[in-house]
Design a protein around this nucleic acid. Structure first.
Lengths: 158, 158
DNA sequence: GCCATTTATATGGCAAGCCATATATTCGAC
DNA sequence: GTCGAATATATGGCTTGCCATATAAATGGC
């Protein structure tokens, strides 16, 4: 007999259908697959869409602020923003007040996309039926989880 | 994805903090960041870990069955399995009964990893404190969502 | 003011992840 | 049996996403 935990405990823990992380992972992949055809006509990927949402709201942000908003690595954001600049969605320029910082702003084209983008959430929701109360619950639980995970990740760094 | 369709105008729908998809996306990224240092000693990435969980349970699966289990594209799985074969985790061979199919099996080394891997979920959970009841709820809600999203994705294909 | 430290962003290398397309095998209509 | 359709996997091209490392600018101690 094992000293701590039975073999079936270990077995159980490694079952796909006993892992919380897996449905989150699968849902995220599937959601991006559903977003893709809705965002492609706007010339946006899902993560670019997230950046745009921050910019439509706040007009101007630094790369570091985007990191905090989106929980992404700089190594992800830097090339992402470069492509967005290449595609005429945003501009990037050094902050005169602090030359280390890079400020990201919308181009007129990027700004204009906002009205078309406002239909995207509606079109996405039309793709599948979901109980609004469940979705609200899911939103709250996952938002709380993100807070804890974010703390855990930053705690690891130190 | 909008949380409520009725009272929100276009601006509201495009707020990051009104979108269900975003916390799921952020949680998935953060989780993979926490998994990485736990899985790296085993020579596994998160998606490889998922494949291994299927194999530890079922011994032998085809690429297509993995697609169904993990909700991943073949274009993702094919190179993934190739790397896993290169790294001595699995073997791949054509099914004699149907030469179109490729059967994936564990190597002895891959099989041996199971006992070390059984500690990973425990170590991960130790990284952040979460209410078990909330996690259970989150698991159920996200699993339901995955079902609906999966249906929606396959519906799009036809 | 000067130098070490911190802070903000960039780059390179690698693994995913998707789509569109290509190839090989099997199945079906006939 | 034969040929076209369906099925299973592979490949190429692109974007993410991360880490480790590099560079440049600001900060603090002296």
């Amino acid at each position: 007999m094992p000293l701590s935990g039975s073999a079936s405990d270990a077995d159980d823990r490694l079952k796909l259908d006993r892992q919380l992380c897996f449905p989150l992972y699968a849902a995220t992949n599937l959601l991006q697959r559903l977003y893709r055809p809705l965002l492609a006509p706007l010339g946006l990927t899902y993560s670019q869409y997230l950046v745009m949402m921050v910019l439509w709201d706040r007009k101007s942000v630094s790369v570091g602020e985007l990191q905090n908003c989106l929980y992404l690595d700089v190594g992800t954001l830097s090339p992402l923003l470069k492509r967005m600049e290449r595609d005429g969605l945003v501009t990037r320029k050094r902050d005169p007040a602090d030359e280390r910082r890079v400020l990201v702003n919308l181009t007129p084209h990027g700004d204009k996309l906002k009205s078309a983008a406002s239909q995207v959430p509606i079109m996405l929701a039309a793709n599948f039926n979901s109980d609004p109360a469940d979705m609200q619950q899911l939103y709250e639980l996952s938002t709380t989880l993100v807070g804890r995970l974010s703390d855990a990740v930053t705690a690891c760094k130190d």
